[in-house]
Structure formats: C-alpha cells, structure tokens
Design a protein around this nucleic acid. Sequence first.
DNA 1: TCAAGAAATTAGGCATTCCTAAATCTCATG
DNA 2: CATGAGATTTAGGAATGCCTAATTTCTTGA
Lengths: 241, 241
Amino acid sequence: MTTETSHPSVAAVRSTEEQYVEVIGLLEEQNSPVGTAPIAENMQLAMPSVSEMLKRLADKGLVTHAPYEGASLSEKGRMLFANVIRRHRLWEVFLTQHLGMSWHNVYEHACRLEHGTLEPVTARLGSFLGNPEYCPHGSPIPGADGTWPPSQGQPLLEMPIGSEYQIVRILQENDADCLTFLFERDVMIGTVVRLMDIASYDGTVSLDVSGKPVAMGTRVASRLRVTPIVEMRGNASGEST
Amino acid sequence: MTTETSHPSVAAVRSTEEQYVEVIGLLEEQNSPVGTAPIAENMQLAMPSVSEMLKRLADKGLVTHAPYEGASLSEKGRMLFANVIRRHRLWEVFLTQHLGMSWHNVYEHACRLEHGTLEPVTARLGSFLGNPEYCPHGSPIPGADGTWPPSQGQPLLEMPIGSEYQIVRILQENDADCLTFLFERDVMIGTVVRLMDIASYDGTVSLDVSGKPVAMGTRVASRLRVTPIVEMRGNASGEST
DNA sequence: TCAAGAAATTAGGCATTCCTAAATCTCATG
DNA sequence: CATGAGATTTAGGAATGCCTAATTTCTTGA
Ligand SMILES: [Mn+2]
Ligand SMILES: [Mn+2]
Ligand SMILES: [Mn+2]
Ligand SMILES: [Mn+2]
C-alpha cells in the first residue's frame, strides 16, 4: 500500500514526515488547528520550510491544510500519530525503567529511537514492558490498535487552594528545560504538593513540596495535572467503608 | 568538532554515512580494499551512487579511496565503524535475549535502531545487557573504548572431516536468506555438528546435526566458524587436571 | 476604516542522496 | 600486444528538505 520509494537507507524520508506528524499531533492537543509558527518553533525550522512541508503532507493525505488556516491531522494522520506516539512512549518507559535514565531527558532519545522501530519490535517491546498505559510523564500510550487510555489528572491551576494533590502528569514533555526546572525542585510524577497560593498580580504559583516551598510561573504551573489527595482524618491506612 | 548542520531532523545525514561505513567495514573483513560493486550490491544501490558517496566519505576523512582501487576505512572511519557495530550488536542482543526475537532476523531491526542511538543510551544499554562480548551471531562487540574482543572459531571447511564441532559464529549476518536457510536446518550458534563430507566435485558439505543429515553449498558452509569438541573417553564431566 | 504588525506563503537557492546513460579504465587472454 | 568484458567513474537529472528574502494575507486597534 505504502508507496515504497527505492530508498534503502534507513527510513530517511519517512522519519521526517513522522516527526512532523508527531509535532502537529502534540500541538493540536493544545489548540487545533495548528499554525505554521508553532510547528516551526517546536522543530527549530524556518517557517517556509514548514509551510512547504504542510503542503506535501496535505498531498499525502496526512493533514488538512488550507492556506493561512493552519493544519490538522487527517484520519490517516491521526492513525500514524497514535502509532508514533506509541513507539515513542514505550521507549520512554524502557529508557527510564530498564536503563535507569531520568524522566526529564528521555524525550529526545525516544524521539530518535521511535523512527527506527518497526512493528515487530514495537509489539514485542510493548509486551516486554507489560503494555504500560502511561509514559514516565503521565501521558497516555496508545494501544497496538490505536486506542488511547483515558487522560489522567486535572489542571493544578483549577484546583482549590490549600489542599494537597498528587502530580500525575506533566504536559509538554518535549520541553527539556521545563522538565529540568521541575526535576531540580523535586516536582515529578507521584510527588504530593500542597497548593499554597496563586498570586493575583502575575499568577505566580507557590507550592509546598514535603515542607519545602517551591515557586513557579503560570506557564510552567499550567502544565501540571494532578489528582486530589483524600485527606485522612485519624485513619492512617487507606481502608474505606 | 563535528560540523553540525542546522538539520534538526533526526540525524538524517549522519545515518546514511554511518550505514556506508558499517557496510564498508563489514565487507573489508572479507577482503580489503572493498570495490564499489560489493558495496552497491550490499546496499541495493546503483554503482554511481556508491562511487559518488565514496568520494564524499574520502573528503570527510572516513575512507581512503583512489579511483578504480576500492575503498578502505581510515583510522577515523574505523573508529566510527567500531562504534556503529557496538550499537548494532548490543541491540541485537537486546532484541533476541529480552524481546525474544530470532537471531536470523534481528539484523535489520538493529540496523535501524543503531542510527538513532546516542552515547548515553549505548552506555546504559551495554550495562543493562551485562556488557556482552559477542552478538547472537557470534561476532565480537567492541567495547565502549573501541577495542574488539578476540574473534571466535575457525573456518569449518578447514577442519578435519569426521569430527564434531560446535558452531560459535556465523559470518555475513546481514544475509537474512542465508541465516534463514541455516535456521530452518537447526544450524545455529551452539549447535554441535559432525563434518561428514566435503564433496571433491563441487565442494558440497554434508553435516550431521544431532542425527539429521544437512547439506549445504560451499558459499554457505564457508561462513561457519567452529570450535572443536573434545571427544570424551569415559569421562562424562568436563574436568581437567 | 485603515494602517501597522503578525502570520503565512512564494520565489529562488542550496546540500544531500539517489538514478540512468554514457564514457573510461583495468585486466586477462588470445 | 590488441581487445572485449567487467568494473568504475562522469555527466546530467530528480526528489527531499532546508534556508533567506520578498510578498501576500490576516488581524487589530487607532
Ligand atoms: Mn521523533
Ligand atoms: Mn512521555
Ligand atoms: Mn544500520
Ligand atoms: Mn550479529
């Protein structure tokens, strides 16, 4: 079905297209359709390069794209997107859980490995890892059939002040600087934080991380997804009823 | 040091060059220097493509290449070769030992993964696997410092007829058809075979594989490397003085 | 309403990597 | 030593994917 060009070199063409589809899909989770500018910024490319590629991707039926109106993944594009993200996040799980790498810098490595990973390897890697449903950043990993596990957590910034929450997901996992910022402050998946304050002036967020005060701007804080911690009253164990 | 072009796409340029260096290095193990034709055949490319690339690789100092005289890896090229092969064979070990893939078809998958594997992942993958010295085909895996473990085995065809030998290495691991041929006849690393006959007419080789007769041509048989099995006389265990 | 200013596209190029067809070189052999 | 077969390179092109500069389109606030 796929028009196999006579390129025997390791999937050179396809990995570029895959990368565009991956970036477009991720950006579309924030707002759709995606403009040329965010894609260019994300991939560190000049805008005309993106503009041109969007045309080509549209020709191939991977995206919908009317000039000046941004791009959206087509059905076919969303299929490819799920598959790429699946490979990507499975590698992230492998790199962190088995190779002992830190969650804040696995994105780049997974992003390279994913493009050289064919279906037989993906399938077996999934089994090897126990078919995990979430990556080290708490994002869902599509199954082999392309279905997505439910998204975890609610925006921290929409939660009542004063309570405790557990971090279950950190968005924009490809922003290594941001992840490092959080990593250095012990804010990671599983961390329990108390939301102390959201400054009315500029929205600066103050957290309490196991006794230590941590402050961050709105841009970073808005990427945190949390689950409320049920406050226990005199009942130490997690028993209910 | 490396002239980083502004290509952010996943190491597109480098992986092509890497692939050439890998192929040239492997072919050089058979006879050096390597002609344009074998490279073209191995990579399924037209000869002018190879001829042109050899010129470019020579410019970059990765190969030595005088027109009409074939190519050899330079010191720099041999360094890169060892590194690529290290990544390649570590992935082969991972794919077979941990993902349960067959040794006769891991070459292609490893060949794709290797180009997207940066040093931090290589190092940790090595540790994870216990820093193996040989791949599933019995070929040596260079260490992180570029040194090669000793080559295993002697050519089966140079061994006396009538004795038993253990297969310890199968050369030309990238020839999937050949490996499948052997796989289907239970000739693999660790297999013990008895060399029954080498026909004087056309060199056809007859083996006994645990009671089953197996015949193969010279081209295939010449790729087998073996270790003599010490014939035990009444002493079942492997004790020595 | 209309003139920045921002966003996007078009124009024109360049590097890489591949191809087919046409020389050219090498080497063994008559 | 001539010559043909085979190996190799040159010539000439094409596709991909990226860039800068210029132009066009959209948005928005005076
Ligand atoms: Mn990627
Ligand atoms: Mn992730
Ligand atoms: Mn390879
Ligand atoms: Mn191998």
